[in-house]
């Protein structure tokens, strides 16, 4: 009876570097294919609303496009706006979209009031929106 194996481990890590990551100062390693923030690319979006219907969290609402924005194919002039606070990042909207109109990123840092909705990201894809 005894616990030599763990004692050795304790000593090893007593002098070693800590495993924890000092997050705000150090980046957490993240996968490229991590399901992070995503938004609609208005060059491709046709305003079909399928993503809003299929969203299990009801996080997507269809909004009217601003007057000054010109989009190639969107007769009804509506586009999906994702509320990142509601979104559960299941990517159902990405996979269900018939026009592959969603741009996906592995960005997991979504806090802050300016980034709470996908509105600006989507508008930037066609040169509009606040920077």
């Amino acid at each position: 009876m005894g616990k030599p194996s763990l004692l050795k481990e304790v000593l090893k890590w007593f002098i070693g570097r800590p495993v924890t990551i000092q997050y705000p100062y150090e980046e957490t390693p993240i996968e490229n294919r991590f399901r992070g923030r995503h938004f609609a690319d208005l060059n491709k979006c046709t305003g079909c609303s399928l993503c809003a219907i299929e969203c299990p969290a009801d996080a997507i609402t269809m909004e009217k496009l601003p007057e000054e924005v010109s989009v190639p194919k969107n007769p009804r002039r509506i586009y999906p706006v994702i509320s990142y606070g509601k979104c559960v990042y299941c990517y159902r909207c990405v996979t269900v979209c018939p026009f592959d109109a969603y741009i996906t990123t592995n960005d997991y840092k979504i806090t802050g009031p300016a980034r709470l909705y996908s509105r600006d990201y989507s508008l930037q894809s066609v040169g509009g929106g606040a920077q």
């Binding site: 763990l6 481990e9 399901r35 990042y89």
Partner: peptide, 29 residues
């Protein structure tokens, strides 16, 4: 508690494997 920390540290490796496979550490969808 020491053992708790050690097991959780090694569990994090599995979470990484899950992230590689499914795209998220916990909720795979």
């Amino acid at each position: 508690d020491t053992l708790f920390m050690y097991i959780m540290r090694d569990r994090e490796k599995v979470m990484k494997a899950k992230e590689i496979l499914t795209g998220n550490r916990v909720l795979g969808d």
